[in-house]
Every structure is written in C-alpha cells, then in structure tokens.
Deep mutational scan, measured.
Amino acid sequence: KYSDMIVAAIQAEKNRAGSSRQSIQKYIKSHYKVGENADSQIKLSIKRLVTTGVLKQTKGVGASGSFRLA
C-alpha cells in the first residue's frame, strides 16, 4: 500500500523539516517494486494522508513541498 510506503520513507529519512515528494519517490522506487504509475499514485496518496491528518505539510502547497508525520 502506497500510504504505508510513504510513512516508511518519511520515518527512514528522519529529517526535522520533513521529506520532499521527490525524496519520498526516490526511497519508494529503491526499496519497493512499484509499477510505472508510481509517481502519480504517490502524489495522490500524499494528498490523502494530509487530508486525513496522518501527514503534516511543512512547506509548499498540494503534493509539492515537504511533509512529516503528524
């Protein structure tokens, strides 16, 4: 599940300011076997996790910027 992968990526990075979408994508692609549409799936999952309150956006708008666990 992409949401689990995103949470794992943010936990692994341990950046106080949060993790960027690009760094999350890079982590997921190197640690998991994902399909061609992974980028758009990650983007959608990040937006969903922010609206449900699992992630907090520290910089930027939408799916860009930095995110950390709430």
Rank of each mutant, 00 (worst) to 15 (best):
L69Q: 05
R16E: 12
N15Y: 05
Q22C: 14
K33C: 11
K26S: 10
V50E: 04
S20G: 03
T58W: 06
L44S: 09
G35D: 10
G62P: 04
L69W: 04
I24W: 02
S23L: 03
G60V: 06
Q11C: 15
Q11G: 06
G18T: 03
K59D: 08
T52N: 10
S64L: 13
A70V: 08
R16F: 09
S30I: 09
D4G: 07
G62Q: 05
H31A: 04
D39V: 07
S19P: 04
N37V: 05
G60K: 07
R16G: 11
L44W: 08
V7A: 09
V50I: 08
R21Q: 13
S40A: 12
S30H: 08
K47W: 15
S23V: 05
K59E: 07
I28M: 02
V34S: 03
L44A: 12
L55W: 00
Q41P: 01
V61G: 12
I46D: 01
M5C: 04
Q22D: 10
Q11I: 12
K56L: 14
V50C: 15
K56M: 13
K1Q: 10
I42H: 00
K29W: 05
G62I: 05
Q25I: 15
S45N: 13
T58A: 08
N15Q: 06
K56T: 13
Q41F: 10
I42V: 05
T52D: 10
G65H: 12
Y2E: 00
A70M: 08
K29H: 08
S19T: 08
V61Y: 12
E13Q: 09
E13V: 07
S40N: 11
V50D: 01
G60E: 06
I24S: 00
M5N: 01
A70L: 07
S66P: 08
A17D: 11
S19I: 12
V50L: 12
G35M: 05
R21G: 09
Y27A: 01
K14H: 13
Q57G: 04
R16A: 13
I6L: 01
S66V: 12
Y2Q: 01
E36Y: 08
K47V: 10
F67H: 04
A8K: 07
G53M: 03
K26H: 10
T52F: 07
L55V: 05
D39G: 05
G18H: 04
F67S: 04
S45A: 15
N37P: 02
V54G: 02
S66N: 13
G65M: 14
Q57M: 13
R48E: 13
K1W: 10
Y32W: 07
I6R: 00
S66W: 14
G62D: 09
V34Y: 03
K29A: 06
A8I: 06
D39S: 07
Y2P: 02
V7N: 01
Q41S: 06
K29G: 03
S40E: 14
G53D: 02
Q25E: 13
G18N: 03
G18K: 02
S23D: 10
A8S: 06
S40C: 10
D4S: 08
I46F: 03
A63P: 08
E36P: 14
Q25R: 06
Q41I: 12
S66F: 14
L69V: 08
S64I: 10
S23M: 07
Y32V: 02
A8T: 07
G60I: 07
H31Q: 04
R68E: 10
S64Q: 12
K14P: 09
K14M: 08
Q11P: 00
V61D: 12
K1S: 14
I42W: 03
Q41L: 14
L69M: 08
R21N: 06
I6P: 01
V61L: 09
S30M: 11
I42P: 02
D4V: 11
A17W: 14
S20I: 03
K1V: 10
Y32A: 02
D39W: 09
G62F: 07
S64G: 14
A8L: 05
K26L: 11
G60Q: 07
I24H: 02
A70D: 04
T51L: 13
M5G: 02
N37L: 06
G62E: 05
M5E: 00
K29Y: 09
S3G: 09
S45F: 09
T52R: 11
Q25K: 07
K33N: 12
R68C: 13
Y32M: 03
T52L: 14
Y2D: 02
D4K: 09
S45R: 05
V54A: 04
A9Y: 04
G18P: 03
S3V: 12
S40M: 14
L69I: 09
Y2G: 00
A38M: 06
I46N: 00
T51S: 11
D4R: 11
L69T: 04
Q57T: 07
K1Y: 11
G60H: 07
A38V: 09
Y2R: 01
A17S: 10
S40G: 06
V34Q: 02
I42D: 01
L49Y: 00
A9K: 01
T58N: 08
N37K: 08
K14L: 06
N15E: 05
S23W: 13
G65N: 12
H31T: 05
A17N: 13
L44I: 12
K43G: 10
N15K: 09
L44E: 13
Y27P: 00
S30R: 08
N15G: 08
I6K: 15
T52M: 14
Q57D: 03
N37A: 06
K59Q: 08
K59S: 10
V54Q: 04
A63C: 14
A9I: 03
K1I: 10
I6G: 00
Q22A: 12
Q11V: 11
G62R: 06
V34R: 01
R16D: 10
K26N: 12
L55N: 01
Y32S: 02
K43D: 15
I24E: 00
T51M: 14
K56H: 12
N37H: 08
A38P: 04
S64H: 13
Y2W: 15
S40Q: 12
S19Y: 02
K29I: 07
I10E: 01
S45L: 10
R21W: 15
G65V: 15
F67D: 03
R48I: 13
D4W: 14
Y27K: 01
Y27D: 01
Y2M: 10
T51E: 14
S45Y: 11
I28R: 00
G35E: 07
V54K: 05
L44N: 10
T51V: 12
H31M: 05
R21H: 12
Y32P: 02
S66G: 12
L49P: 01
K26I: 10
A9F: 03
M5P: 00
I6N: 00
M5K: 02
E13C: 13
L44Y: 07
L69N: 05
D39I: 08
S40R: 15
K43V: 12
Y27M: 01
V34I: 06
S66T: 12
V34G: 02
A70W: 06
G60C: 10
I24P: 01
S23Y: 14
I28S: 02
K26D: 13
S23Q: 09
I10S: 04
M5R: 01
K14D: 11
A8F: 04
L44D: 15
K33H: 09
G62V: 05
E36T: 11
G53C: 05
I46K: 03
N15A: 08
T52P: 00
G60M: 06
V61M: 09
K59Y: 09
D39P: 05
I24G: 02
K56W: 12
S20R: 02
Q25N: 09
M5A: 03
Q22V: 08
K14F: 06
A8P: 01
Q25Y: 11
K56Y: 12
A9M: 02
